[in-house]
């Protein structure tokens, strides 16, 4: 599978390059939008939850939001754009053949290119924020979190990209789901809130919360600066579970992709 795709690395490079550039073509701020988008969202959440609702749940709340929001944006944008990875490339798919797996992979890599500088920037800001301390030993989670996120995101993208060719409803469903999904991730609140919740319901079902791979992944990012509020609150078995889930999902969606791909050229 990978050998097949490596043959096309020139093409992959070109497509990723194109994807990154085309998105910000005709926009004044260009590449800066990769930062402006999460910053804007962060400002909204910080204002609504931090100021209006007056729930400064953690130290340096805006930064906390950003630490979770940037990985989330990576996931969110990959999935949104990934839905159209095949259905948005009709002219190519109908006229030439090359492994179509390349389209979703391109979307993932292009978003990764956007994610890394944004994350590094926040990381650096966090380093110099008084009151926050970099947990060196937690850094081992970082490559793991990134890899896990890539695997999980790729699996989801494979699935939605090929399904959307057959049923355009997928696009709407994905957009709606992503909104709900965001609130099920520790972005505007830390996971430590769940165990300490006053609601019995929340405390009882807190373990269900970590069945959501993105909740675990985002907590792993949080752990670097917010150890008490993040990853240490996750049962280790859940991390293993998420790793296995992501791998199984990847195999499954790869298989579905292969199957449905056979008729993509005619139904698209």
């Amino acid at each position: 599978m990978f050998a097949d795709i490596m043959k096309y690395k020139e093409l992959l490079y070109f497509l990723v390059h194109k994807e990154v550039r085309i998105r910000y073509r005709n926009s004044i701020f260009g590449f800066l939008w990769t930062l402006l988008e999460p910053l804007g969202l962060m400002a909204i959440y910080a204002l609504v939850f931090g100021e209006i609702l007056n729930k400064n749940l953690v130290k340096a709340y805006p930064l906390f939001i950003l630490m979770g929001l940037i990985p989330w944006t990576f996931f969110n944008n990959t999935l949104r754009r990934g839905t159209k990875a095949l259905s948005g490339n009709v002219s190519l798919i109908k006229k030439v053949y090359f492994p179509r797996e390349i389209f979703p992979i391109t979307i993932l890599l292009a978003n990764l290119v956007n994610f890394v500088p944004a994350f590094i920037l926040v990381f650096v800001i966090a380093m110099f924020t008084p009151g926050l301390h970099l947990q060196w030993y937690q850094l081992i989670y970082l490559p793991g979190a990134l890899l896990l996120q890539c695997l999980f995101t790729l699996a989801c993208t494979f699935l939605v990209s090929v399904l959307n060719v057959y049923y355009r409803d997928v696009e709407f469903i994905v957009n709606l789901m992503l909104r709900a999904w965001m609130y099920l991730c520790p972005i505007i609140y830390p996971v430590s809130l769940l165990g300490a919740s006053k609601s019995d319901l929340v405390r009882e079902f807190a373990w269900l919360y970590f069945l959501n791979p993105m909740a675990v992944i985002i907590s792993m990012y949080h752990g670097i600066f917010y150890p008490k509020e993040a990853v240490t609150k996750i049962p280790p078995s859940m991390i293993i579970f998420v790793i296995i889930l992501s791998l199984l999902l990847l195999v499954f969606s790869w298989w579905i992709f292969k199957r449905l791909n056979r008729r993509v050229g005619e139904v698209i």
Binding site: Y8, E10, L11, Y13, F14, L15, K18, L92, V96, F98
Partner: peptide, 8 residues
Amino acid sequence: RLNCAIFG
């Protein structure tokens, strides 16, 4: 460039 890359 795109097409040349597609054709390897």
